[in-house]
């Protein structure tokens, strides 16, 4: 392995229904389509050197997914980005590629920012529910996990949950109300997902959107004291061009 690259990619539109496993298979095929000189692990069944940061749930769109690849020959990051983006279906879009500097990607990610579009929900109703959620010390929600039904707190991990004032209606039918929630959640165990916060809004205020809300991850990275999120590739851009260890 002579070079490590880090990529930011998006899952958009209908392809937000791509599961992480689906994406991983498509990405490996894209590496071959684009003739990327990917490095392989040693051993009886060599695997391409790809590692993923925490992936958005199936059905959730994302503008901020991250992965890292190891290469056996150096390439120009922008050329690689263009080639890989062309090799993937439209909707799975490679947005950025940078040469990795020291430190791991995982260490630079501890929170996500999400946008929740609640169609056919009056912003007023959403405001009330969000206020009740924020006031609560603890909001117990349930979710099916591999271990069965689990109950856990969806409140503590939430750093910010506000109903945004937006002039433009989002995509979707005209004339239908839509509440938009801006949500920042720390990545904890067990994970608190946007779905869990939506369950929390139902628990505290009985908010039940009549159609499934559309959720998009807008950012992932490290949380600042002000509640902002720092792009994990910033550090790579600053220390540009080290080109692997």
């Amino acid at each position: 392995m002579v070079q490590r690259l880090r990529l930011r990619y998006a899952k958009r539109g209908p392809l937000r229904f791509t599961s992480h496993r689906d994406f991983a298979r498509a990405f490996e095929r894209a590496l071959r389509r684009a003739a990327v000189p990917i490095a392989y692990s040693q051993g009886f069944t060599p695997h391409p050197k790809i590692s993923y940061a925490s992936a958005a749930p199936t059905g959730v769109g994302s503008e901020a997914e991250y992965l890292e690849i190891g290469l056996q020959a150096p390439v120009d990051p922008e050329q690689l980005r263009v080639a890989l983006d062309a090799a993937l279906s439209p909707g799975l879009d490679i947005l950025e590629a940078v040469i990795a500097s020291e430190g791991s990607l995982a260490d630079r990610i501890d929170a996500s920012r999400w946008r929740l579009e609640l169609f056919e929900v009056e912003p007023k109703a959403a405001l009330a529910a969000v206020a009740a959620f924020n006031e609560a010390q603890e909001v117990l929600v349930e979710r099916m996990t591999k271990q069965g039904r689990r109950s856990f707190d969806a409140r503590a991990a939430v750093v910010r949950c506000i109903v945004t004032e937006e002039a433009d209606l989002p995509s979707g039918a005209m004339g239908v109300p839509c509440a938009i929630i801006d949500l920042v959640v720390r990545q904890v165990t067990p994970a608190v997902r946007p779905d869990d916060v939506l369950s929390g809004l139902r628990v505290v205020a009985g908010l039940e959107p009549p159609v499934p809300p559309r959720v998009t991850r807008l950012a992932q990275g490290s949380l600042t004291a002000q509640g902002d999120i720092v792009d994990p590739l910033d550090a790579d851009r600053e220390g540009a061009g080290i080109g692997g260890r």
């Binding site: 209908p14 392809l15 229904f17 599961s19 199936t58 059905g59 279906s89 909707g91 499934p212």
Partner: peptide
Amino acid sequence: LEQLLPRVSKPIQYVGGEL
């Protein structure tokens, strides 16, 4: 259809987008 997909198993099979 999009409204129904979050409620079914393996929704990706219904969205197309194949190479």
